[in-house]
Design a protein around this nucleic acid. Sequence first.
DNA 1: ACACTTTTTTTCGAGCAGCGAAATTAATGC
DNA 2: GCATTAATTTCGCTGCTCGAAAAAAAGTGT
Lengths: 405, 405
Amino acid sequence: MARNVSDSDSVRRQNRGLVLGALRVQGPMSRTALAAATGLSHASITAITHDLIVQQIIVDLEPTERPDARGRGRPATLVGFNRRVGTAALFEIDVNRARISLVDYGGVLVDRIETPLTPRTFAETRPTQFLADRLRQLKERNPAEASVLQRVAISIQGILDRDEPSLRWSPISHIADTPFVAELSAEFALPVALYKRGRLLAEGARWLDPALSDASVATVFVGSTVAMGMTFRGKILGRGEEGATEFGHMNHLPNGALCRCGMRGCIEAYASDYGVLRTAYSVPETATPAPAVPPQEYEGMIARAEAGNRAATHAFNTAGRAIGFGLGRMMAVFDPSHILVVGPGARAFSLMKSEILAALAGTLICHVNGLPQVVAYRDEREPVFKGLMMKTLNDIDQTDFAARA
Amino acid sequence: MARNVSDSDSVRRQNRGLVLGALRVQGPMSRTALAAATGLSHASITAITHDLIVQQIIVDLEPTERPDARGRGRPATLVGFNRRVGTAALFEIDVNRARISLVDYGGVLVDRIETPLTPRTFAETRPTQFLADRLRQLKERNPAEASVLQRVAISIQGILDRDEPSLRWSPISHIADTPFVAELSAEFALPVALYKRGRLLAEGARWLDPALSDASVATVFVGSTVAMGMTFRGKILGRGEEGATEFGHMNHLPNGALCRCGMRGCIEAYASDYGVLRTAYSVPETATPAPAVPPQEYEGMIARAEAGNRAATHAFNTAGRAIGFGLGRMMAVFDPSHILVVGPGARAFSLMKSEILAALAGTLICHVNGLPQVVAYRDEREPVFKGLMMKTLNDIDQTDFAARA
DNA sequence: ACACTTTTTTTCGAGCAGCGAAATTAATGC
DNA sequence: GCATTAATTTCGCTGCTCGAAAAAAAGTGT
């Protein structure tokens, strides 16, 4: 049982990882800047960048003529990622849409395929085949990039297995418990990573706002589901490093409203789009939830609530209360300094905010430590995609490229 | 911004830490065994142990004549901690008792002072003075050990500040918001660590049962308070690495029973000793909680419930329900494979078990992943003390002694 | 033009890690 | 006494980082 022995090899890996990480976060920079960013000496930076350039992982960038920022002294030559050295295929599987994107090692989108989903899709086509078909198509359309494909990563909703990368349950019909990760990995002879969407939200929040990258943040997605990702002082947290919570299915009221998951009283059953509509239309709480809510119908309900419609206002208050109590209960275990609300529900944040804050105010932690900052991010600029891409590229950096050739 | 640079110094620190950690966990052993336990080569073990012996941190143990386990070949000389190289003072502050223990670097108890506490104690004596008096007394009684005192560590209940080691709130009267950590540290010129008791429970659980040291465990203390510590795959978790949860004050029922903390509906208000007695005696939920419950009264209630008394049974059912819903809600954020119940309430576990399991069964996570193992540890053999001591000694290992002289 | 200044980058030599292989040490067995 | 066995140390080697000095590549000034 040998673990964590440190030797000169692990030193190099660590420091190469530091260099790649700095480039990933801050973009191309000079060797001098790298020394400052990593804390390594100039001598070491020279050695490490030399190695990485020989291995074609990074390249010296051509000096772009920017006569404005020129001073005395030898001009810096920036180094940046060699975009051609690798690519990754990123699947985002949502309830009503699947999307696969091919990105290069520099984080530039190469190509993308989008497909609408229905609840029948994965009953009619095996998930493995559905995904493999699209991946094959993408590879055929981009042979150059496909030849250096390094990773497949998948974003999905649901509950992952504690130990292996497989899906135990999902709100997406007929996809859970099919071994698509293993099958894809075997078919394409590539590592396939599976991430819970909520976890990627947390990852994405870091890249959205640099101020949050060291903070403790809970990112709550409100829309057709309710999900959450957490970071503590910049590190992904929740159900372990694999980072996943089932916030949407935390119990709000025992024996309460029926949720899509089949349980009763989940937060999602009150706070998701279908929950809000059900409350607003006074549909019995035990009625089977609608399989999908058209975005415009949810938007319309927000508009009516903002116009003062009583039923609509009440529905959003109920939603806010569910979210607020959930957050308050979560805070007994983990108390973030910031809470972000993202997704379609962020548009309705002002309708839920007072209930959320009231529920938080009733918790001991908030009473003692004060309320966290609760803000909505409407313009989300695709935090899930960004999180999925950055996580995957960073993983290539640290796992594949930080190790010596 | 330079961080985490790896150089030969950090390599040595890491590997010295590995050696000390192996000795801490497995006790004295031969150099060959150390090589196997750490994964380092024999040559490195020789170098590292030589250094540590020169610095008097570890010593070659005299060969205890054990003719039974002798074989051929050169006999192994075991190395073990030099018990005289350092000592630590450990405070355990509970609602009705304070205890300070002096332990040596080998983990052997040297001396101990116990003092009963009342709700007035810290109103009459400043906390700093109370603690300093006892520490001074302990030092005077043990001058030899006191001369190598390295650390003071304190176990306490309540809510710690997010950033600095101070107490924001505590069920122990008149102790919160007094700067005793800083003052003690200044007066004795020593590092003073402050730990939440729940966190030490989690630490202690590791040392109680080696099988749990790599598992994901929630350790729930049930007694005059309700507290919880968590580990994920062997690592302490919850409100960050500082490891603390406020499980007892997670809301169970909005606007529910009055808790000692002043909030309403906390789990503690139903599941702690005073909560159980209040339910059993049909005292109104809004009545001010008793400041302290004599152990025998709680024991008596357990006996009555076990004898079939309806009111008593009902009270423990209510307590179990509160704990069960709380655990179920926690599992949306963090789902352990094992749940341990410790403390006086472990004696009543069988009275609460069915309600706990029923509540857990109603959660999506358990529905999908199965129920965690829920067991009670009656014979707790002082997990808090053990956790406090091991955490503190390990901290000395890694912080003070792993660094090169 | 040509020497000087400034800034970036590389080179060089020293110091310290850990490692594998070989040597040494200290017992037992015959 | 000598072979055997097992624990430990010694030796020679490689790899890493570092600080200091040198080299490179510009702009500046006369």
